[in-house]
Design a protein around this nucleic acid. Structure first.
Lengths: 264, 264
DNA sequence: GTTTGAACTCGAACAGCGTTCTAGCACGAA
DNA sequence: TTCGTGCTAGAACGCTGTTCGAGTTCAAAC
């Protein structure tokens, strides 16, 4: 939609499949206007599709409709074209999602600071926070990233810049690689489960607070003889401070990393 | 959706409104044999479907064909019935996957050791290893677990038993809850990315070793002026000892946890 | 100026999907 | 014998990813 607000006359429907017969020889003639396909007079678009436009639109659709609502037809519709047209540029739905992932990774690259050896621990944590924010901005990106090994220029650039921080801080090479990979996984895992409390549809989507409270209440109501631990700590489940938990994770992680780094 | 709380008795939902017959009387007749359904002579199965059998079959199909190849029709076919029959027992595909997840969680419950206060750190690590093994046994279970909050009896039992270990070890309640949730996320994240190097189809599925080597070679071949860090540590990417990385993660995690636990 | 071929568009169709509808069967209770 | 209820399952609906191939345009070659 949009982009071409009113663009000549486009009557949406009407099959009119041009059922000419098997008669004589006149097919070289330009067909008279009344039997042309009504919708689109020219097969050539006014602004041609590009891979970039498709990826950008796909990401928009993904954020708006979620992965369940994401389909090639929907993306095509948004670009005012047919689904088949996308396939020349992106190969497949899977290929398109590869590109979308690369695009999202690209959003993070510029946010990684230049290395400052004195502050490498804080900088490393900062990278993790950027990752978390990016994932939160694109709700289904973790699901998409499963099973994909991003190796595009953006992914390489991100890796390069994070490694720069760690090595500048004196982290030994192998440990730097290990912790980079670990950090990636760990942030993915954390942020993936983070959205778990959100409802999917209807019910007004209990805004993460009521829902958690309900969970806590439910846990507290369990039979205490069978679930003594659960019932006793139920209120801690009811107040899930995600930011605090994330920072705890980073602290554990970087603290141990620093200790091992110094011990070498 | 999802939810999957206790679920008490049978019959998920379904009004089964069963519109009454408003016509005459002829529907009681058995239809003559030549106009019966050809395939199946009796509408009643010899061994009736059960929810348990459906879940078990679904898990088998999932492990064999992957989440992409998983469909209600395939599960039904495996049970020698039609897809529509499943819906009476499990409500929807999503509901079936809820049950599958609960089933997989159930596999872990019995592997969690009884608490031994002296060895809580090792026991906690052991739980994480069991989780990892379970996830590896069911390749797409992480993807399924996204967005689901398992609250069935198995999930509750697992939480209860792990909390018992932590609290017996003297970990303060809030920290115990936080670290249980963290550990869950973190193991999920780690194991999710772990399978990433596997190819999907054809090409003989490079057995994770060649592939990693190829990755390392590719990284080493990048322009050194632009990717100085990446090229210098490329060989560490080529030898990804996943087990060692997992143990590193556990060490970092539990070590920091123990320190905070003692400081209270 | 014509021909040719590559780049690109996209309607139509195919197989498969999740789900619903509804007719039908079997069996315990009335 | 007659129900009603639990359960099975074919048919159909609307949707999906993907392919096919005819169509269009444009630039370079003749």
């Amino acid at each position: 939609m949009s982009s071409t607000l009113f663009e000549m006359a486009e009557s949406p429907d009407k099959g009119t499949t041009n059922g000419e017969a098997e008669n004589g020889q006149e097919q070289a003639l330009p067909s008279p206007p009344w039997q042309r396909v009504p919708g689109r007079s020219s097969r050539r678009r006014r602004d041609p599709l590009t891979r970039e436009a498709i990826v950008a639109t796909a990401l928009r659709v993904l954020d708006r409709d979620g992965l369940d609502g994401f389909s090639m037809r929907r993306v095509a519709e948004e670009l005012d074209t047919g689904a088949a047209s996308l396939y020349w540029h992106v190969g497949s739905k899977d290929g398109l999602l590869d590109l979308v992932l690369e695009e999202v990774i690209g959003e993070q690259v510029d946010e990684v600071p230049d290395p400052d050896p004195e502050r490498w621990q804080e900088q490393f944590k900062q990278v993790a926070r950027v990752m978390r924010q990016t994932i939160q901005r694109h709700r289904d990106i973790v699901e998409i990233s499963i099973g994909r090994v991003p190796m595009g220029p953006n992914a390489l650039g991100l890796t390069e810049r994070v490694l720069a921080i760690l090595r500048a801080g004196g982290v030994p090479d192998e440990l730097a690689v290990q912790s980079y990979l670990l950090m990636f996984s760990v942030v993915n895992g954390f942020t993936m489960d983070e959205g778990g409390y959100e409802a999917e549809v209807a019910t007004g989507a209990p805004p993460l607070e009521e829902s958690a409270e309900m969970v806590g209440g439910y846990l507290a109501s369990l039979p205490a003889d069978q679930f003594s631990n659960l019932t006793e700590v139920a209120d801690h489940f009811a107040n899930p401070d995600q930011d605090a938990r994330f920072e705890l994770l980073l602290d554990l992680f970087v603290e141990g990393l620093a200790r091992r780094s110094e011990a070498s």
